[in-house]
């Protein structure tokens, strides 16, 4: 009887342990030479859910070897002592760091501006910066402090970025259906004209502790991923803006860009795929079948 109980317990334990791996069915195309990255936001709590999301990321990395991760701000909540950086970044993401995954941070309202000097965040001492991977230009913005200098820098960078993919990421969502903050309308009036003028195709933001993919707004694809550590359970009020939303658990997003096609897959803390899909780069010619 005792043996049977033990066996039952073991089977239940194993099924729970293996379930996330099974649930993380890869929907991304894994094309040769593609740009592959993960997206996390509002993660730096140092609490168990952040570690669990990091573990799912690691498991997913084995199937989908992404080479870098973009961080949408609120990278380190609360204290900023050296021990905090370890607990809230270095330890949870150590296996990914060890696997060579780079992290590119943007700053949120809970971050210390001096995080820009932390080498693992790849900010090179700047609170806004750009980098290029394959045919994709990334622009990390400091949405807490959009001063004229940053805006002029952004305009110049976008103007020089050519016709490749242009992806901006920062903390505050220009469009959001979450109830806590909602859309950052003032930032939108400043940034959206630049995005439209210079053909930004995709924007990632955090701040709202949910996952949301919005219907394209004026041709731009917006994602909010602010639930990679924090969560506001049930905070989404699905509106006309919402394409897909998830506010029942933490999550992260993975993205693959191959040529003019972008594919995405959002995965929950328990390893369930909560959103996936793909789209062609707006403005690019359709490839022949």
């Amino acid at each position: 009887m005792r043996k049977t109980r033990r066996l039952t317990f073991l089977l239940v334990f194993l099924s729970l342990a293996v379930a996330p791996l099974c649930a993380q069915d890869l929907t991304l195309p894994l094309k040769s030479g593609s740009v592959r990255f993960a997206v996390i936001g509002d993660m730096g709590t140092g609490d168990a859910p952040q570690y669990e999301v990091a573990q799912r990321m690691l498991e997913f990395h084995q199937k989908f070897p992404f080479s870098f991760t973009i961080m949408l701000g609120d990278n380190i909540y609360g204290g900023k002592a050296p021990g905090d950086l370890q607990k809230k970044f270095e330890i949870p993401y150590k296996p990914l760091l060890d696997a060579g995954v780079q992290f590119y941070a943007s700053l949120g309202n809970h971050d210390d501006t001096n995080e820009r000097f932390y080498k693992f965040f790849n900010m090179n001492g700047q609170s806004y910066y750009s980098f290029k991977k394959g045919n994709v230009h990334f622009f990390a913005l400091d949405s807490d402090y959009l001063d004229p200098k940053q805006l002029e820098w952004l305009e110049k960078e976008l103007a020089n970025a050519g016709t490749d993919w242009k992806i901006c990421f920062f903390h505050h969502p220009l469009y959001s259906s979450a109830a806590f903050h909602g859309s950052s309308t003032e930032l939108r009036t400043i940034l959206e004209p630049l995005f439209l003028k210079y053909g930004v195709q995709v924007v990632f933001a955090g701040h709202e502790h949910v996952y949301e993919r919005l219907k394209p707004q004026k041709g731009i694809y917006y994602f909010t991923e602010g639930a990679s550590g924090e969560l506001r359970y049930g905070n989404l009020r699905k509106t006309d803006l919402t394409a897909v939303g998830y506010d029942k658990d933490r999550s992260f997003l993975s993205v693959e860009i191959s040529g003019d096609d972008l594919s995405f897959q959002a995965i929950s803390r328990t390893g369930v795929t909560v959103d996936s899909g793909s789209f062609h780069r707006p403005g690019a010619a359709q490839s022949s079948p």
Partner: peptide, 20 residues
């Protein structure tokens, strides 16, 4: 204070202040 958020300064306000 270390525990304080950086706070967000409205960009339309920053446009009207001396640059730093």
């Amino acid at each position: 204070p270390g525990h304080l958020p950086r706070t967000t300064v409205p960009p339309t306000l920053l446009l009207r202040l001396p640059r730093l």
